[in-house]
Design a protein around this nucleic acid. Structure first.
Lengths: 124, 124
DNA sequence: GGTGGCTGGTTACCGATGGTGAGTGTAGGG
DNA sequence: CCCTACACTCACCATCGGTAACCAGCCACC
């Protein structure tokens, strides 16, 4: 009865594909990494995730909230305070995404070397 | 002398950021997953990664080749034959990306449930 | 009561990016 | 002589991500 995964990210129409598309995204990755340490407010996230715009951060957070990965806490204060936090589901995403971020940092020298030799080969 | 990572994906200007952007991408993820099993030719990749266009597959593969993640084998035959294979560096990327793909497949039901309740809350 | 600041957005706009469909070059087969 | 197979490449749109500017609500200050 343990049916093998009826879900396959390789299939264009499979819902898991749209989920992969959301999760395999640089902004998603950085927001999840930032939130994995602690819940944060909007402006701190914006500062931590260097280079993200308000609009894109808003959209990213709303999509993540819709998918049940982050939760939004609104405090009726002045000035307004809104905090974002990973849900239990979001915390399960931390390991894979953190691994990806670490990969980028750990292997950047190899990537840069590969680029250099590729570019040298292309335009002699 | 083992300096701690001078690289930080959270910094917009850090090279590792551009690397993360390439690697945290749905097409990249699917191509790497497809190639992790075995080297493949172009048309088989196109068939495996359901929904990708020739143009986008070509671009993705060229970027991955430039970053030293895949290697291109060209056979001077007619009709032409080109095979793509993960490099050693590419194979180190398999685990993180595969984890992400599995996450998407494993948690899709929770994601779909979250979406449903979110959408119900938004427009009653 | 006007001004400015704080916060978490929203909006208009615009260039980049993804996607489509058609075309290209080569050689063997019919 | 033409058709097919394969791996692209190109011209063309549609869509999307990104930027900059603005907004709402409340307070403190003048």
């Amino acid at each position: 009865m343990p049916e093998l995964p009826a879900f396959d990210v390789m299939t264009a129409t499979c819902p898991s594909r749209t989920s992969l598309a959301r999760v395999a995204n640089k902004w998603t990755a950085m927001v999840v990494i930032a939130l994995s340490a602690d819940r944060m407010r909007f402006r701190d996230l914006r500062a931590t995730v260097d280079g993200i715009s308000s609009k894109v951060l808003t959209e990213t957070l709303r999509d993540l909230e819709r998918d049940g990965i982050v939760i939004r806490h609104v405090y009726a204060e002045v000035p307004p305070r809104v905090e974002y936090e990973l849900t239990a589901l979001g915390r399960t995403l931390h390991a894979p995404i953190h691994a990806l971020g670490s990969w980028a940092e750990d292997h950047i020298s190899e990537v840069l070397a590969a680029r250099e030799s590729y570019d040298a080969r292309q335009c002699p």
